[in-house]
Amino acid sequence: MDWSTIIAGLLTLAILSFLYRDNPAYKMAESLLIGVSIGYFLVIIWTKTIMDLLVDPLFYDAKWPLVIPMALGIMMFGRFHKKTSSLSRIPIAVLIGSGAGVAIPAMLEARILKQVSATVGPLLTDTGMPDISVIVVLIGVLTTLSYFYFSHEHKGALGVSAKVGTYFLMAFFGTTFGYTVMSRMSTFIGRMEFLLSDFLKLTQ
């Protein structure tokens, strides 16, 4: 067995030891994971963004407009001193302002218009029979939306509609929960497979 597998196996066991209770081995592995993850992302951001998108085009290809994001980025470091902390609000203003400007049309198109158009379809099939699936989706969208309408008290027709919406929401939460459990389980099976076959050599 090579050293790489032994180290990976021991670290996997250290993390799994948390199932028993919080212990120094788990804490050590967790701290290492935090440090290594931050270091990894720092290196990737440095090489793929700062060097590839900023330093190389700016200093080798003379793309001078890149001075603007560089200056904005440097302003972020103003946070570390009280006297210069207001400088960091400028890049934040650029990010939030441009984000909001982009979000208005994008949200309107992708999250509202497209979702509404996908909901509204022919309620009857070609044979003239009601299309149950389309009707269920239409009722589900309307009643769920009514559940999130808080400007009026949920009484009368709105109350009934909101109550029906609750059932649709529960169906959604149930399926989402099922998929989450399945994805976590498949990852766990993967880790167990590694431990039992690669690390402990108990299975083939």
């Binding site: 949200m107 509202i112 979702q115 996908a118």
Partner: peptide, 22 residues
């Protein structure tokens, strides 16, 4: 169908919320 309907309503709600916040 039912799950997708609730998901769609939540997405519409997120869209409206993001729009007004922006």
């Amino acid at each position: 169908n039912p799950s997708m309907a609730a998901r769609r309503a939540i997405l519409i709600g997120i869209g409206l919320g993001s729009l007004t916040t922006s």
